[in-house]
Design a binder for these strands. Structure first.
Lengths: 345, 345
DNA sequence: CGAAGAAGATGAAACGTTTAATCAGGTCTA
DNA sequence: TAGACCTGATTAAACGTTTCATCTTCTTCG
């Protein structure tokens, strides 16, 4: 037997389908009596409104998409940062009876199929002013929340992180341990126009600020690229090795790169933290379980995912503008075993 | 301006909507000439069929769901095994123009809303004969692929793993290194009725088989539960410690638990592999980057996800039965640094 | 008592597709 | 030359909702 439709319910209740619809949506007029009768029948027959029909009629559809423009196919969810983020997004969506699909990979720049699916909202990760996608995305005219995007338009809904503060705290801590020459494994180079006004940019600002306060000159030779993946971090170890004469600590801008770095050191027979202190960024759920436990800048990835989706669905459902369009989430320092006081020479 | 509908295209092309529909779907009759004309207009105007309308009419909807019955909310994607699996599923779905939503968490046993959404297919993970959900799922009457489920019905589509072989290989390798007393961190206990005919059951069979071949008696005291999470593994370290007099190696049935275990040992000042060899299962993308690199039984998680979704969509699109309903994926041994020959006393 | 207004419910249109039935011509063949 | 058949295209119904205009019936009040 097929699932019941609103017509079946109406027949069973001896009313018109309009009335059933009214009861379901709490709109229009109907007596208390018919309300009870209809609700009872609905429960009994396991009726659920057909989303396709609803979506066709009203263009509402409890489905949002999360797009990560620059991620290569199959690599989004592989990254534990994203999987935690996505996990939070999922959970937040679930709370509001929404579902989520993921998309927007490098090789699929055409997002128009999102309209085809009647997607009702978008979470865009890691865009910046220079992102080519930005126009296309805005052309979709969908409620959107940008994450970690540092877009200057104050009318855009955004969920960010206090990146500068995070790295500032971390660097300051390393300095307090006596480190004066701290290698950075960054996402890209500060001078790179493409990355200005980006997560990476702000993090480097935090680094420089902490150095400045301690009267340590900034040395751009100490900035290495490669915080995107565990392989990146692993390969960075060799580069860091060449800076060993000067440097005593390393700040990786992602835990996943820190993980690779530590393994790189391990394979090169360099002890962490005895020979080299390592600081990460993110506090992934397993960072505590690395050997040694990773000292890192903590952010609540899962919670941020939830926050973003909440902001999005509020936007979708209220339609009108919300007061707080921009959320900056806090960071904190998580000290574990991978950092230690610099050895006295 | 709103997106164009099939009506707009028809008007522009001076034909009826029926003809446009025919051209789009390659059905019915139309001349080469009109085909070209219509296709040109479609391209120019960026027309895409509205999925809701299509779905309403024909009940087709390129959307599948992945349900993981027993996973607690927010913990599915946190687990790197699942995130890799999901990643593969996503990718496979993308190849066929499908999208995926995730669901079926512990606190949401009612799956009927999947029908509401016109979901067209289901991937169910880790069910077994005793899963309460099974009936509900089958009642949905949807094309379904079961992963890691060990269901005996030969008519069900399944994607599994050669679990027994995997553990057999791993155990044999440990034995070849001279280990004769090998602790197992399992998902559950062999005798547990609930887990008969499960992944865990088959893995333990592989363990026993390898022991038997080597003439080593099976000792059930060496079987510990706790392979689900990194925390599990960490806490297992203390239990393993108490078996230290007898045991020299440990086989964790998941890499994530092995990771926790290694960290547990680290904190207890037990050296891996010098004091204790550790073997994992899965070969997560970061297992290579643990310190020490984790020796493990490799499976292609990502590929299995792709395989499952391919099987599902073939089933959806062909409708008719496929020849090969059951796929068993191979395993292999990946030797790294966490295992070593047993120390001579 | 008659008119006005409220309460409760109905009917029909519309959303954008697909498809089966139908139709208008043209060509072939007996 | 009439029926049969083919080709290309049209028409209308149906899918399951929501909403707005409309219709009864009942109550109230001047």
């Amino acid at each position: 037997m097929d699932r019941p439709t609103i017509k079946d319910i109406a027949k069973l209740a001896n009313v018109s389908i309009g009335t059933v619809s009214n009861v379901i949506n709490g709109k229009g007029r109907f007596s208390e009596e018919t309300r009870k009768k209809i609700e009872k029948i609905i429960k009994q027959s396991n009726y659920m409104p057909n989303v396709a029909a609803r979506s066709l009629r009203d263009k509402i559809n409890p489905l949002i998409a999360m797009v990560v423009p620059y991620a290569p196919r199959g690599k989004v969810l592989d990254n534990p940062f994203f999987s935690q983020l996505v996990s939070g997004v999922e959970s937040g969506a679930r709370d509001r009876k929404f579902h989520v699909i993921f998309t927007g990979e490098k090789d699929e720049p055409d997002l128009s199929y999102l309209l085809e699916k009647n997607i009702n909202g978008l979470i865009v990760f890691g865009a910046n002013e220079n992102t080519e996608f930005l126009d296309d995305i805005q052309k979709l005219q969908l409620p959107t929340v940008y994450m970690d995007s540092y877009l200057s338009d104050p009318d855009l809904y955004q969920v960010g992180l206090n990146d500068e503060m995070g790295v500032y705290l971390g660097t300051k801590y390393l300095i307090s341990l006596g480190h004066r020459s701290i290698v950075v494994i960054s996402y890209g180079w500060l001078g790179d126009a493409e990355h200005t006004g980006s997560v990476n940019h702000c993090r480097l600002l935090g680094y420089r600020k902490a150095l400045e306060e301690a009267g340590i000159p900034f040395n751009q030779d100490l900035v290495i690229e490669g915080a995107f993946s565990v392989e990146d971090g692993y390969h960075a170890a060799q580069q860091v090795l060449q800076l060993r004469d000067q440097a005593t600590a390393c700040f990786a801008f992602s835990d996943i790169a820190a993980m690779g770095l530590i393994k790189g050191f391990y394979d090169l027979n360099i002890s962490v933290p005895d020979d080299f202190s390592v600081m990460g960024f993110d506090d992934l759920y397993f960072s505590e379980y690395l050997t040694p436990g990773l000292t890192t800048v903590r952010q609540d990835i899962y919670g941020r995912g939830q926050a973003a989706v909440k902001l999005l669905i509020d936007q979708i459902e209220n339609k009108n503008d919300l007061e707080d369009k921009q959320i900056i989430c806090p960071v904190s320092l998580k000290v574990r075993q991978s950092t230690a006081a610099v050895r006295k020479p």
